[in-house]
Design a protein around this nucleic acid. Structure first.
Lengths: 251, 251
DNA sequence: GTAGCTTCGATTGTATTCAAAAGCCGGACC
DNA sequence: GGTCCGGCTTTTGAATACAATCGAAGCTAC
């Protein structure tokens, strides 16, 4: 069965390059292409992307580890439910992860500055951020705010990569995705003001100021959180519920 | 090459049931069977477990998403480096995730108590915890402390499952594993006192007391953190570095 | 002797194929 | 009429086979 025997290198099921499939599916889940609870059959995805089931399965295993899909043996996979009831917890965790990432990114930038020899990896990561910021600015200028959510995820992930912390990046891949998922339907609620904060943050990072980067990221995330919660609670949000009095080391 | 043609249901490469492979590999990484930087070839793992490369690949994709292995296209997979330089951040994140899980577990238990009809899923999860606690107590009594690290990971994961929060469980799978990984070589440093705290925590959970469960878990994790840091800094650990002044909503 | 190119081996990525389990429908029996 | 049992279909799980790519050793030429 030659499927689409006539896809002459055109669009449609045209052999997705590499691990793009995984990103595509995640994107579809987060931004509405695949509704929660929807049944995912490997064969359907394979047809859709013009590949075989094997890479699809691998992508699903990744997404399962990240919590976007759920699988039961021989029973298939379904899109997870949007974790609305975990919103508080996710935001609390995100605050910690993101501020840590921002701090580390700034620390690393400071080291690169001091050494005077920024390595290739750093330049590559910094370049990606610049591209993302430019794309976001363009989107804002054009008024096409529907592009911002994905760019937002990519920006925050890129900051984590700039921090060169694999653990934080892995955590953030789940967190940023999940939180953007929470915003789901409600695209243009956020926007310009939130986006413009990104450049401010990057100036702190680039100047190698960990304290300031950390603080800016913290308020950025908290603002995002407040914006989210305000949609559901017309009154003020309940106390953050989480950040437990650190009660840290016995001094 | 019939491999072990005579493995009559015995040990050896005897068809690992399901997703056990993934757990086996993760366990090998965390507890020393696979050293950081070690190259992982799919064929070798497939032979080792008596299965084909396909399920091995899926397991590797999961472990990659969790950050335990790193893969580059056509270049294979290697065991990630133990994230010692991220220890501070990981502990900070863990504190938030674990306290949230404990709180939610207690809240759920309270609901089950109130309703009077604990559902099957809850009983199953609670039963798993009981088993783990029993196994740990036995290990302590026998002095076989080398069993505690793995039981510790399983306990904390089970608490997250009891909280019925998929996001927190997924996050914790990374965090608990990574942190136990940090302890790696140094097994019997921790032990009895830390383990005995688990039962105390569970009494708070079972009685449906979120505040107390949260607080107990917080101090439990902080103690673990302090124990870890004290190995490297004979003096007192540096200020926690992370928990940023939440500076929460503008109120 | 060294630099560059080529060929070869090893390993991953993907497709195809077969086996196993789950869910469903229909029929028969109580 | 309801319930249980049997076989079908669908879908996942796994194994095998093949193609693509990378890395390194070896050879030639300068």
């Amino acid at each position: 069965m030659p499927a689409e025997s006539a896809d002459a290198g055109l669009s449609g099921p045209a052999a997705v390059p590499k691990e793009r499939i995984e990103d595509e599916i995640r994107r579809d889940i987060i931004f509405g292409g695949l509704a929660p609870g929807a049944r995912i059959t490997e064969a359907a995805l394979a047809r859709k992307y013009g590949i075989s089931r094997v890479p699809v399965r691998e992508a699903l295993r990744t997404l399962e580890a990240e919590g976007f899909v759920e699988s039961r043996p021989y029973a298939g996979s379904t899109v997870s439910n949007i974790p609305v009831d975990e919103a508080d917890d996710l935001f609390a965790v995100r605050t910690v992860v993101e501020t840590a990432a921002a701090r580390r990114a700034a620390e690393r930038a400071g080291r690169q500055l001091a050494a005077g020899t920024p390595d290739d990896a750093w330049w590559a990561a910094r370049g990606r951020i610049a591209d993302i910021l430019a794309a976001g600015d363009t989107a804002v200028a054009e008024g096409s705010l529907e592009k911002l959510p994905e760019l937002n995820v990519r920006f925050h992930l890129a900051v984590a990569e700039l921090a060169d912390s694999r653990s934080l990046t892995a955590l953030l891949r789940q967190l940023a995705g999940k939180i953007e998922w929470l915003y789901a339907a409600d695209v243009d609620n956020r926007g310009k003001d939130s986006w413009s904060e990104h450049r401010v943050l990057m100036t702190a990072v680039d100047s190698g100021d960990p304290e300031r980067a950390q603080q800016l990221m913290c308020s950025h995330v908290e603002q995002s959180r407040a914006g989210y919660l305000s949609r559901f609670t017309p009154s003020l949000p309940p106390p953050p519920s989480l950040p437990p009095p650190p009660s840290l080391p016995p001094n």
